[in-house]
Structures are given as C-alpha cells and as structure tokens.
Design a binder for these strands. Sequence first.
DNA 1: AAACTATATAACCATATTGTTATTTATGCA
DNA 2: TGCATAAATAACAATATGGTTATATAGTTT
Lengths: 109, 109
Amino acid sequence: MTMEFEKIADILKALADPTRLKILSLLRIRDCCVCELVPIFNISQPAISKHLSRLKMAELVRETRKGQWVFYSINEKRLEEIRYALSHLPDLSEELRELEQQGLTVICE
Amino acid sequence: MTMEFEKIADILKALADPTRLKILSLLRIRDCCVCELVPIFNISQPAISKHLSRLKMAELVRETRKGQWVFYSINEKRLEEIRYALSHLPDLSEELRELEQQGLTVICE
DNA sequence: AAACTATATAACCATATTGTTATTTATGCA
DNA sequence: TGCATAAATAACAATATGGTTATATAGTTT
C-alpha cells in the first residue's frame, strides 16, 4: 500500500522536469505520437523520445504503436498514486523513538 | 492560481530525493533540529544541512532558531499546493490547436 | 575571553541529467 | 526490392546533483 521512499523519489524525478510536465499536460487533452510532440517543443526528436522513455519507465505514460506511429497516453492512475504517496509518506515514528532511547533528543525552552 | 511548469518542476526536484522525503516524513511527526536528523541518516551533517537548505528554497520547510539549535518545520501548505498543481497542470489546448492549423496533426485508422 | 556545540558554507569529486548529432530499427508504400 | 517516414539508440558534452572533508559562523557556557 504505502510506497517506499526510493520508489516515490524515482517517480517524482520522472515528473520533475518542465518538458515532461508539459508532455503530460498535452496527453491529458488527447493521446499524441512523437512526431506531434516534436514541433511543440524547441528540442530534437531524440530528446522528446528520451523524455517519453523516462515517463514510461515511471509508468506515467503508456505507448501503443499504430502503423508507423507510436502513440503515448497518460496513466492518470499513476499520477493519483503519487499524489496519494505525498499525503501518506512511510511512517518514521520508530526512528524518532530510537533517537529518544539513545538520549539524542533535543528539548529546549 | 495555476503554477508555471518551471515552478512546479523546481518544487518536484526538491521533493525527488529519498533523504529529503524522509526528512519531510519526520517533520510531519514533530519539528526537528539538524543534530537530531544527522544520527537518523548515514550521511554527514553538511549533507543534511544542504538537503534542508534545498527544502527551504522550495518553501517546503521553514526554519526557526532556538538558542544554538535551528529547528525545521514542515510547510504542509506547500505540499498541498504541489498535489493540487499535479491535478491542475497549465492548459496547453492552444498548442494542440496550432498544431492542427499547421496541418501537423496525425490521424490514423 | 576562551572553549565548546550547532549549523552553514567552501572546495572538491563522482555520477546523473538533459541536450546534441549520427545512426539504427521499424513500418508503409511505389 | 528499395525508398520514405517515424521513433529509438549510441556516443558525446555541459551542467546539475549529492556526497565528502575542511573551515567559518553563531550562540552557549565557564
């Protein structure tokens, strides 16, 4: 249920780029193929391709080949998962309890 | 209201690290000072200090000096903002409309 | 004032990220 | 079969990231 810190960080890294966020925003309107995305951005086709690959690795998008085109679609479920993960990060109460037992807790005033 | 792609990406970059996510999870339990966080992680004090500085830049935490200690607290409002931003990314319908006008839209089947 | 504790900053290094151009692979069609 | 188009991969370069150790700064205590 609760996602590991490493896993959450990996998905957030895939999200943490303006180009990839723009791609996701476009895919919210409709599925797009690579050759449609390229003219919208000021970067090369391989760059777009790599961004899509990064998003696919994080399962934020899915790809479907249609003839010579590869269409990408958004995986809204994954985005919902990451929003949920940010609200429900793994619990670290135990770590703070150990800190207290080791007498390393700082108390002031 | 709607946050720019660059701005959202900056905040997501600050979040996209397992150590910083752990720090935020700890601060959800209670405010902590740097010297309490250090023994919980297997990294140096300056490393923790830099992570906190990164979180502060993104306004995900706030700092308060109490005597010789600096206590950090979580800014839940900022986290709520980023969750909202992921649900409401800036609209790019116009970009797709221009694509159609330029005849670059791909239609198959 | 001097010594101690807590935190931040500087300088540095290894690796990751994000772009490029050149090339390869996959599909469609004359 | 051979050529055109779409997309992915390879090789490379510049910059960002995340760690280190050494040092500076801020506050406390003797």
